[in-house]
């Protein structure tokens, strides 16, 4: 992080964006996606599939790949078209692009992986309304070059997949006593699998715990790096207004201004 983060004089949002752009190396985009701004556990975006498909590690890993594909593909296209799409109709345009990629995933999955299609069911088409995808298209890809957008898509998707896998593993191991459909030793004989974790309430519970763990990790890392560099790191604390938790932030704020 460079030194202009440390002075605390007031800067307008535009200036801040410019500064953020300058300070953003490819490495920091990857770190942001995987850790500091992890879409699921830090920004709390796209949690509907996160809670629903994490019953088993396998289905959550697959969901993660589907999201990476849709996110990277649509960010790339949005970024290529960023000077062509008029600002007023950008949201429908983004949604159309995203829906195209989701349809590709849907067709491929139903042709080659019918079993997964069964278990993921409605949650594949619902990637369209996954807040992560629209939010990244709107806040990142529509302002940056295609190369950066692809990198952002990969790292954000990777972060989302990590979160999915983390939750999927916890819920499958504790709820069914298996991991990737392999039966674990001890479970069944010594430890009884806890049904609660594979039922819907378990999803909410594990997600809450995962957020706490992630917060702890991020605070720890920030403290260590801050001690080293004596700089203030970006203040990306999650605030919990109705807007921040849904990803359609800008749409919402626009209508408020009107």
């Amino acid at each position: 992080m460079s030194e202009h983060m440390s002075d605390k004089t007031y800067r307008s949002p535009d200036q801040r964006l410019e500064e953020k752009k300058k300070s953003e190396s490819p490495w920091s985009i990857v770190l942001n996606g995987l850790l500091f701004e992890n879409p699921a556990l830090r920004l709390i975006l796209g949690i509907c599939p996160l809670l629903a498909v994490t019953i088993s590690a396998k289905s959550s890993l697959f969901m993660g790949f589907a999201v990476i594909f849709v996110l990277t593909g649509s960010e790339f296209i949005v970024s290529l078209l960023r000077h062509v799409i008029p600002v007023k109709v950008r949201i429908p345009a983004f949604i159309t692009i995203i829906a195209g990629f989701v349809t590709i995933v849907q067709l491929v999955v139903s042709a080659y992986l019918p079993a997964l299609n069964e278990s993921l069911g409605i949650y594949i088409p619902l990637i369209v309304v996954n807040c992560v995808v629209l939010a990244r298209a709107e806040t990142f890809a529509s302002k940056r070059s295609p190369a950066y957008s692809v990198l952002d898509g990969l790292s954000m998707g990777g972060g989302f997949t990590l979160a999915l896998l983390m939750m999927g593993s916890i819920r499958e191991i504790l709820g069914a006593g298996t991991f990737f459909d392999v039966k674990l030793p001890l479970f069944g004989s010594v430890i009884e699998p806890i049904m609660f974790f594979s039922l819907p309430p378990g999803g909410f519970f594990v997600f809450g715990i995962c957020i706490i763990i992630m917060q702890w990790v991020v605070i720890r890392i920030k403290r260590i790096t801050a001690n080293k560099n004596k700089t203030v790191l970006a203040e990306s604390e999650t605030d919990e207004s109705a807007c921040s938790s849904c990803g359609a932030c800008s749409i919402c704020r626009e209508s408020e201004v009107k």
Binding site: I91, I122, V128, S255, E256
Partner: peptide, 23 residues
């Protein structure tokens, strides 16, 4: 209700129910 309307576009419940009706 005005401020809630734009949020509904990205509400998966709405798309979800229309797709479930078909499947």
């Amino acid at each position: 209700l005005g401020i809630y309307l734009p949020l509904i576009t990205t509400n998966c419940a709405v798309l979800g129910v229309t797709i479930l009706n078909i499947t």
